[in-house]
Structure formats: C-alpha cells, structure tokens
Design a protein around this nucleic acid. Structure first.
Lengths: 211, 211
DNA sequence: CTCGAATCTTTACGGCGTAAAGATAGGAGC
DNA sequence: GCTCCTATCTTTACGCCGTAAAGATTCGAG
C-alpha cells in the first residue's frame, strides 16, 4: 500500500491549506440554507472552521466572496443552456423551448444562487470572471434566438427585441415562481412550472399563436 | 386672521402626534436613497426625529414597516395599470401594450419600491392589506388579458397561460432593466426601454408575429 | 382631577462586517 | 540545516444593526 498523498490535509493545522475553496463551499451551503438575505460571512467562516477575519486574505470582503459564487452560478447556467440546446432536436422552436425550460429549471433547482446572480448591489460587476461568465450565458441564448444574424450595434438595438423577449419571458416566469406566484413550497412550484411554462413559451415562440 | 388649526403640530412634543405616518414617509425616503439592501430602521427613526425603539408601538418590527410600504406600492401599481388601460383605445392589443408599458414604467420610476415588492423574505404576506393590494394589481392584468373568461380553478390552470405569459414578459423585462441589462444609470435604462419594450410586447401580443 | 394606558426614551444584548495588531508556519536563500 | 521574510490565521476592537426591557412623559376617560 502506498501512503495516501498528503496533499489532502486531514484537519486543521494553523494554516488551513485550502481555505479559499473551503470558504466557497461553506458559502454555498450558507446561501442555500439561509438565502441571500440571511447570508453571513461570519457564519461562513465558522463553518469553514476559521476565525471571522480569516477570509480577508482570500476575499477582500463579503462582496468579493459573493461575486465568486455568482460567477460560478453563471457558468452553471451557461452550461445548462448550452447542453439543453444541444440535446433538443433541429427545430428552432424546440431548441428555444428547451433552453427556456433549462433556464427556469436552474432557477428552481438553485433558488438562492439564482437570486444572488441578479443582486447587483451585492456583487462586483467589474469583476472579469463574473462578466465573462454572465456573457457566456447571455450568448448561449442570443445565438439561438437571433440565429446567425449579425451582432447588433448595441444592446438597445431594435434587432435585440426577440432576444430580450425570450429572456424577459423566462426570467420573469422564474422570478414570479420563486417570489411566490405559485406558492412557497418547492413541490407546488415545480408542478405549476411543468403545467404552465411550455404553453407560456409557445405563446411567444410559435408563429401565429399570440396571446 | 383665524389661528392656524393646531391639528398640525409644528414640532416635537414628547408625543410625536403622527409618528406612524412620519415613519412611513421617512422609510420611503431611506428606501429610495439606499435601496432595499441599505434600508435601516434606525436610520428611518433618526429621520423621523425619534429614538430607535420608538417605531415599536406602530410597527412590530422592520418587516411590518416594509410590509406597509409594499402594500402602498402594490396599490400604486394597481392604479397605474387600471388608468393605463382606461386611457388606451378599445383594441385589446393596444390596451395590453399600454398596461405593459405602465408596469415597466412604474418599475423604473420607483426602482427600490419595485424591488421591495418581490422580496418575500422581507415581507409578511400574511398581511391582509398587502395581499389585497397585490391581488388588485394582479386582477387588473388578468381581467384584461383573459377578457371575461371564467376564473380558472387554480393559478396553475392551463387557462392562466396567457396571463402568466404577459406578466412574465413585462416583469422579466423590468427586472432585467433594473438589474443592469441596459446599464446602471437611469437615462440609458429609459432609452433602452422606450426603444425595445413596445416591440417586445408586440412579439407576444400581436397574432402571427412570433419571435 | 386622577389615574390607567399609550407613547416615547434609555439602556442593554447579541449579531453583523471588517480594520488593526499579534501569533504561527512555510519556504526561499544562504 | 538555519534564518528570516511573508503569507496565513487569530485576537481584539469599533461602529453599525434589530429589538427586548424598563423607565419617563403625556394623553384622555372617568
């Protein structure tokens, strides 16, 4: 038997060894349990087994830590959108519907993380990682909706209307679901989403339907 | 000259006289200046010229005060939706568009208040005033979209799809605008909304358009 | 006019984020 | 192998926060 590689420290020397990663893990737990409103850096440090001031060396402040979480969340979302599109058929409408379901699915699976992603007051959107991850998610949607059309001059360009319509629809639906439009427990939310969301998306996507 | 009616106390006796109203006013100011994240009951009391514990007799806790603000906000929103519909023409599509513009207009005019309205973690949705005001706003929209159709069995009923689609679309658009999709300053937001929102709404509302 | 009840102040407690200063350990250079 | 610099972590402390508890003041019903 070879000795186990000691790169994985079992427990707590004075120097933690991989505190940065441990803080991110703990922060995700705290966030999931208590929501954005109840998040606390001290509690996160407590769970990582270190003092309240220890995070300072890895994250300048709470905002920096939350920004790292949000960047990861945008990456997860981007992956879900990309793979949902890939797994759908060739029809554009089907692909768009699949992405929409994936978007709302992510929101329901990770409600606190989804909340965080849009709390500009708590995040540092000057952070490159965050910006890149967010753009990747946005591009996944835009590429599909405006299929091959030349990139618009700005994000207020009228050519962006279809993308903004799709994004707004699924984003609004997700937010309303999370904010209690279908009740507060996870079960009834999911039931309502399954029952309504496909029809809602088709109202926008299928030509000639309209509301 | 008659003496001024002394129902309006000029300044501070030990008993404030109308602290409840003063607190609501001050709270609206604090909320508008600092946003939901930066709101503080102590600061609100300070501005009302009263000690940190004084609000206790009028609002059990911060949540109760914010709940009162949110109820007022939902009432304002309902009024805007109702009058926007009334001022629009007879065509259903025009009326729906007018309501959508009014919805997003309210969000941009009162960003902090609009934020608050959806922060279930900070509000008491057991409060009757809040529930009623919210329902009034929702009904304004639903009555218009499902024009005269019988009320659905539940809010997950498939018949609710058109209402949820309209609501989701404008709600999502408003949220994305407030959360930085078109920049962070008020001006560029409003420009983007004017340029995009009518087209976005028509994509859903006008038959045969689709995205 | 009196006295209970409503309103407001004072004081206090524990939690938060984080700044500043001290303790400890890892590792580069000799 | 030893020294010492530096990164990492702890301790302590400060000023916020919400709000509980107890005391002061005023109002108004009887």
């Amino acid at each position: 038997m070879k000795p186990k590689p000691d790169s994985v420290k079992i427990e707590r020397a004075y120097h933690h060894g991989s505190l940065r990663a441990a803080l991110i893990d703990a922060a995700e737990d705290v966030l999931a349990e208590r929501g954005v409103e109840g998040f606390s850096l001290r509690e996160t440090a407590r769970r990582a087994g270190v003092s309240p001031a220890a995070p300072k060396h890895h994250f300048a402040d709470t905002r920096a830590l939350l920004t790292a979480l949000a960047a990861g969340a945008y990456s997860q979302l981007a992956e879900r959108l990309e793979s949902a599109e890939a797994e759908a058929g060739k029809l554009r409408a089907h692909r768009i519907r699949a992405q929409g379901l994936a978007y709302v699915g992510f929101a329901l699976d990770q409600p606190a993380l989804f909340d965080l992603m849009w709390r500009a007051a708590l995040l540092d959107f000057g952070d490159e990682n965050l910006l890149m991850a967010k753009e990747r998610a946005f591009n996944a949607l835009d590429r599909l909706v405006r299929a091959g059309a030349s990139p618009p001059a700005s994000n207020t360009d009228a050519a962006m209307a279809p993308t903004m319509a799709c994004w707004s629809l699924v984003h609004g639906f997700a937010r309303l679901a999370l904010d209690g439009a279908f009740g507060t427990d996870k079960k009834s939310r999911q039931r309502a989403v399954l029952a309504l969301l496909p029809a809602v998306i088709d109202l926008l996507v299928l030509r000639g339907k309209g509301i």
